[in-house]
């Protein structure tokens, strides 16, 4: 996507926190999509979200795409023997009847090749691809680098 379209996507941000919206696809609900501000566009951004599977069939998140980054990937932060690394996650299981969180210190979307720096208050779309449910697009709120998550009345912390 070119810069013009990205700019259009970024200015679609509404004052109400989109991170608190819930988007449904099939038996899946996707909510609390948020990201952190970045210093410049050189550093990778991050993407967090909560996915709930209310159905009786296991599903899996297998990919993410966004106009905000050239190379978005799924990662998992792993701490082994005290050492943190972030291997690529080929797919993130979303078992039937369970919730899965992409959250600080665990699974996350790694947004490499940012088109532009992410600024607090911006928002951008991310399309999630599920093995069975297919694709769904959510709006992601950019919070401060210090944020630990969106402030939603129903946030399941």
């Amino acid at each position: 996507m070119n810069h013009f379209l990205l700019a259009a996507a970024l200015t679609l941000s509404a004052p109400a926190a989109m991170a608190c919206e819930t988007v449904a696809i099939g038996d899946l609900t996707v909510e609390h999509a948020w990201s952190k501000a970045t210093i410049g566009a050189g550093r990778p951004g991050v993407f967090y979200v909560e996915i709930t599977n209310t159905g009786s069939t296991d599903d899996a998140l297998v990919g993410i795409a966004t106009p905000a980054a050239g190379m978005p990937m799924l990662h998992e932060t792993v701490v082994q023997d005290g050492i943190a690394s972030m291997p690529h996650a080929m797919s993130i299981p979303v078992p039937a009847g369970q919730s899965v969180q992409l959250s600080p210190g665990g699974y996350h979307g790694m947004l490499m090749g940012l088109t532009t720096a992410l600024k607090e208050g911006d928002s951008f779309p991310v399309t999630l691809t599920f093995e069975k449910a297919g694709e769904v697009t959510v709006n992601v709120d950019v919070l401060s680098l210090r944020a630990e998550g969106p402030d939603c009345a129903d946030a399941g912390q």
């Binding site: 970045t38 210190g105 210090r146």
Partner: peptide
């Protein structure tokens, strides 16, 4: 390191709290 988008800002947020 500052290019670390997950562990490092999370730790710094915790420390700030």
């Amino acid at each position: 390191f500052t290019w670390c988008p997950d562990v490092c800002p999370t730790t710094l947020s915790d420390i700030s709290l």
